[in-house]
Simulated scan of single mutants.
Amino acid sequence: MFYRPEDGHGLPHNPFNAIVTPRPIGWISTRGADGSENLAPYSFFNAVAYVPPQVMFASTSAKPDRDGTKDTMANIRETGVFCVNIVEYAMKDVMNRTSGPWPKEVDEFEDAGIARVECETIPCSRVAAAPANLECRLSQIVKLEGEANFLAVGEVTGVHMRDDCLKDGIFDVLAFNPLTRMGYRDYSVIREKFSLSRPGE
């Protein structure tokens, strides 16, 4: 099968969602200028540079109470900071709860019963029990093609790692089994890993 996105695919659901898979989930916590808290998952997320360490995520829809975007991006515009909380399999249900289309007044930490603590380098909350948290200062917001598509790039200014995830000097993902997005309503969990050496190493 071949299709041009501009012509449509003729399938029941958009296959593009499932082709780039699996995708890590950036569970983004933010605080608005008014002090309101928000926590929401984004699967258009990844690390993009080592030095300085940088991450990106994209928001691709809008809410009527947020001027063409969603709570997360609106808060980042106001404050210039955000925190990426890594999602483990054990947190799948509370993570999913925070994906709801709640009014901006709703604090997802409270709504989903998620414990929070203050970040060290930015004025923002983070998920206390997450395997890792990346505190970020906004580098830039890029308007992408499409009505409500925005890409945020942040420089990582602080890194938290849960002690039980450090094994023999490495951050061991099998200690917590990361949750990944597969597309549609499908997710997967990482329970296996292997190593490959690059040519010349």
Results as ranks from 00 to 15, higher is better:
Asp34Val: 03
Val127Thr: 05
Cys136Thr: 07
Phe57His: 04
Asp164Val: 03
Glu105His: 06
Glu37Cys: 11
Val81Ser: 01
Asp163Trp: 03
Arg126Cys: 02
Val189Met: 09
Phe16Thr: 00
Gly8Cys: 11
Val87Pro: 03
Cys165Ser: 08
Ala62Val: 04
Ile86Val: 15
Phe2Gly: 12
Asp186Val: 00
Val159Arg: 02
Arg116Val: 00
Phe45Lys: 06
Cys136Asp: 03
Pro24Trp: 10
Trp102Gly: 02
Glu37Lys: 15
Gly8His: 12
Asn177Pro: 01
Ser195Cys: 13
Gly158Glu: 05
Ala148Lys: 12
Glu192Asp: 15
Asn149Arg: 14
Leu144Lys: 11
Phe150Glu: 12
Arg181Phe: 09
Lys70His: 03
His9Cys: 07
Met91His: 14
Thr180Gly: 04
Ile190Gln: 05
Met182Leu: 15
Ala175Asn: 03
Val106Asn: 04
Phe2Trp: 13
Ile122Tyr: 02
Asn38Val: 02
Thr69Asn: 00
Val55Ala: 03
Asn14Cys: 13
Arg185Tyr: 12
Ser59Gln: 10
Ala152Thr: 07
Gly8Glu: 08
Ser29Met: 08
Met161Glu: 10
Ser36Met: 06
Gln54Asp: 05
Leu11Tyr: 12
Lys70Ser: 07
Gln54Cys: 15
Asp65Trp: 04
Arg23Thr: 07
Lys70Asn: 02
Phe176Gln: 06
Met182Val: 11
Ala74Gln: 13
Asn17Met: 14
Met1Thr: 15
Pro101Gly: 00
Glu147Ala: 13
Ala18Pro: 08
Asp168Thr: 03
Asn149Met: 11
Asp7Pro: 08
Gly10Tyr: 11
Pro131His: 06
Gln140Lys: 15
Phe45Thr: 07
Val189Phe: 06
Gly200Arg: 08
Gly32Asp: 11
Gly68Trp: 02
Asp65Val: 01
Leu144Pro: 11
Arg23Val: 01
Tyr50Trp: 05
Gly26Leu: 03
Pro101Lys: 09
Arg23Tyr: 06
Leu144Gly: 10
Ser139Asn: 15
Ser29Pro: 02
Ala115Gln: 13
Asp93Gly: 12
Thr30Arg: 02
Asn75Val: 00
Ser197Leu: 14
Gly10Met: 13
Val84Phe: 09
Pro5Leu: 08
Tyr50Ala: 14
Ser99Glu: 00
Glu78His: 03
Ala33Asp: 11
Ser99Phe: 10
Thr121Lys: 12
Glu110Tyr: 06
Val48Ala: 09
Arg137His: 09
Gly158Ala: 06
Tyr42Cys: 00
Ile122Asp: 05
Met56Pro: 04
Gly113Glu: 11
Pro15Glu: 10
Gly183Phe: 10
Cys119Glu: 02
Gly100Lys: 08
Val81Gly: 00
Asn133His: 08
Tyr3Val: 07
Gly169Phe: 08
Lys63Phe: 08
Cys165Gln: 04
Ala62Ile: 00
Ser36Lys: 11
Gly169Tyr: 00
Ile170Asn: 13
Glu147Gly: 07
Asp71Gly: 07
Gly113Ser: 10
Asp111Pro: 00
